[in-house]
Amino acid sequence: MNREELGGFLRSRRERVRPGEVGLAPGSRRQTPGLRREEVALLAGISVDYYIRLEQGRGPQPSAQVLAALSRTLRLTDDEHDYLLRMGDQAPARAGSSSEVPANALRLLDRLDEYPAMIVNVCWDVLAWNEMVVALIGDLGANPPRERNTLRWLFGDSPSRPHNWIEHARQAVADLRASGRYPDDPDVRQIVDELTSTSRLFRELWAEREVEVQRTMTKRTVHPWVGEIELDCEILSVPGGDHRIILYTAAPGTPSHDALKRLRSWRGRPLRHGGCGIPSGNTDI
């Protein structure tokens, strides 16, 4: 049970809920954002002292019933509810992150040859990709494995991030926390510690404790061959593990869809500078 993270998460969600959202009068002398601790305890049907100890990271392990009551009171999303259960040790533990790509994921990647597709792990390391990714953003194999990481690129100093990169940064941080692997997974802890020490933006986003599994996002950028392009990124879970496939598509009939068609004819040609992101030695992933 991660008492410190459980307490911090409860506190951050409590401060987000407005009294009127749960049927309470705002009151003219309210000094704290969101709900008071005693209000959360009352609505969840637990003692005030017990809830205070949970927030302070010194309470006993809460039951699944208590966590469910807190989840309802704090109006958590499904992803946040799952995260709360993991922090309270009421959900099955997950295996450590892995850089080894499952064979079933590679077979699936081979069949997705008409669209750019890549495989990432829970840390957002890019582990495998197809030729359409090379046509879109350049040869990832030219970069050391450590640099083939979306988080390090988003929070680094690359001048060629996508137009909406801050939105992507926020989404990636929320997804990393939603994995529920921090701080127990050494790989996740390492990248969080690293970026906390090097990036002010990452520190601020991580401190917000947003939790959301990413399933889709939109990226907009300018490609050196096909010009401005907007792609839908579908993030597909690989059965049997935590690896995911990111598939880049565009709506039929749009200029971006036509741009992808042109990229297919250029597969295998070297891309000397980044398409959707970082130039030689980095990339928008």
Rank of each mutant, 00 (worst) to 15 (best):
173 V>D: 01
177 R>P: 00
162 P>F: 02
249 T>W: 03
229 I>T: 02
282 N>V: 04
218 T>S: 14
119 I>T: 08
195 L>I: 10
1 M>N: 07
62 P>R: 07
164 N>E: 12
149 N>K: 06
36 R>N: 01
125 D>W: 11
47 S>V: 00
28 S>F: 13
147 E>M: 13
141 G>V: 07
45 G>T: 05
180 G>C: 09
135 A>I: 00
171 Q>H: 13
255 P>G: 11
115 Y>F: 15
117 A>K: 03
168 H>C: 09
132 M>P: 05
253 G>H: 09
159 P>V: 02
34 G>R: 11
20 G>Q: 15
98 S>A: 09
253 G>S: 05
13 R>N: 07
246 I>G: 00
83 Y>W: 13
163 H>K: 09
206 W>G: 05
180 G>W: 11
217 M>Y: 12
231 L>I: 10
222 V>N: 02
15 E>T: 11
23 G>W: 15
192 V>E: 03
230 E>W: 12
189 R>I: 08
202 F>M: 14
245 I>L: 14
10 L>D: 04
153 W>P: 00
184 D>P: 06
123 C>F: 03
100 E>Y: 08
22 V>I: 12
137 I>D: 03
193 D>H: 13
54 L>V: 00
117 A>S: 07
208 E>D: 15
266 W>V: 03
176 L>A: 02
149 N>E: 09
1 M>F: 07
10 L>Q: 02
17 V>W: 04
172 A>S: 09
273 H>V: 01
247 L>Q: 04
212 E>S: 13
253 G>Q: 09
181 R>L: 15
246 I>T: 03
247 L>P: 03
276 C>N: 12
177 R>C: 01
277 G>T: 08
268 G>A: 09
119 I>W: 00
112 L>A: 02
251 A>W: 03
76 L>Q: 05
192 V>P: 01
213 V>L: 12
213 V>H: 12
284 D>G: 09
251 A>T: 14
61 Q>D: 12
